[in-house]
Design a protein around this nucleic acid. Structure first.
Lengths: 215, 215
DNA sequence: TAGATTGTTAATCGATTAACAATC
DNA sequence: TAGATTGTTAATCGATTAACAATC
């Protein structure tokens, strides 16, 4: 399995979008595309596309462009989508449930293996085909089941304590929906944050900004 | 109402996080903080904090630092959280429902005024205290109710058609959860994307990367 | 071979960090 | 006044864009 040297965050963040656009082209039956054509469809520069892809290897061919299907597969491999990281969800509230039901974990390199909550009314109910477990059983579960990652869908107040429990169980990879900054406490972890409140506030700023422009 | 000159995206994206940390300090009863202290708590440089804040004005005082409460309020104003942008939600599936129930729109400058879906079994059911309307009534609703923004929680396939309808109704501000790039089609709009699939794939890349480091 | 388009180096642009004079 | 810390300019660093030789 290949390892790439210090790829910058901006490049990594663009990979899923390339993957999505290439997937659409593939569905439409397009077999080849030049960086120029793709750049126009995606609204970025051809130069950037070529620079980005060349971080991982020379996938194109001079005078021809890129073969859509093989580039799509290459990016899938780069992203590591062929993995099956065992993942548990903490918090089966509205958001946790939606994430569990809504996401195709298998297509994105993950497998949902457990769901935990401390609300007695939720314990035992099924989401997808996984029964919600008592949060008290977290330690037992993790000792018996290899767990690679955790999805945090708990309220801000509950986050620090749960983070500590997960960390001491050896879990180092987090998809964090809580309004709490894991990476301030723990340095040796991988965290991808989805801060919906932050996102909504950014939208608010930009709407306000746009309206003021008109005046 | 103030208008700031071309604030860069990186700065804007940090604002909600400042707001969150200052809110926590405020809750703890901290009245003043220096850029240095705050930088340590947040894991960034003091220089960056001072640069960021000075895009909007001189909120600090030499020799003293920043007054937590007033800085908190200032950032709230900069973000425009005192607004009440009328917002409709399109798509009352798992994700749409979770977003509607989970978010404190009022605290973030928005007010949820309508929910639309085309699934007959959902129409008429209540989310929060808003009854889900038939998507067919979208045009009527928007003609009778001033609507500033739309939240898109519809499947990728449905997104282009719905985007066109919303755009022709004059809606220019979007919180987009669909795996569809609005800004490629429409240039004069404000879009804040929440692409959960992209986020999960980025996590997958980074986990894979971290594991390979260990080998 | 000629045309097209990549891979890659060089130039530009923008964002972050460092430094320090201003000032509370 | 002396110490602290800002606001702001200058230096550095990194990311994007442009250019072009390599080559399919």
């Amino acid at each position: 399995m290949h390892k790439y040297q210090n790829i910058s965050a901006p490049v990594i963040k663009r990979l899923p979008r390339y993957y999505r656009f290439l997937g659409e082209l593939l569905d439409k039956g397009v077999t080849r595309i030049s960086s120029r054509e793709l750049s126009q469809k995606m609204g970025l520069t051809a130069s950037q596309i070529r620079q980005d892809l060349n971080c991982f290897g020379g996938f194109g061919q001079q005078g021809y462009g890129y073969a859509v299907e093989s580039l799509y597969n290459e990016i899938g491999n780069i992203l590591g989508l062929d993995h099956n990281y065992n993942t548990i969800l903490i918090g089966a509230g509205n958001l946790g449930k939606a994430v569990a039901v809504h996401m195709s974990f298998e297509k994105r390199g993950f497998r949902l293996t457990g769901i935990f909550d401390n609300d007695k009314s939720k314990i035992g109910t099924k989401i997808r085909d996984i029964a919600v477990s008592d949060l008290a059983e977290l330690e037992d579960f993790c000792k018996n089941n290899n767990t690679d990652a955790a999805i945090l869908c708990v309220p801000k107040e509950a986050a620090p304590e749960i983070a500590e429990r997960l960390y001491s169980l050896g879990i180092r990879n987090y998809w964090n929906f809580s309004h709490y900054d894991l990476s301030v406490q723990y340095q040796d972890i991988v965290v991808e944050n989805v801060h919906l409140n932050d996102s909504l506030m950014i939208l608010c700023y930009r709407i306000t900004d746009a309206y003021e422009d008109q005046e």
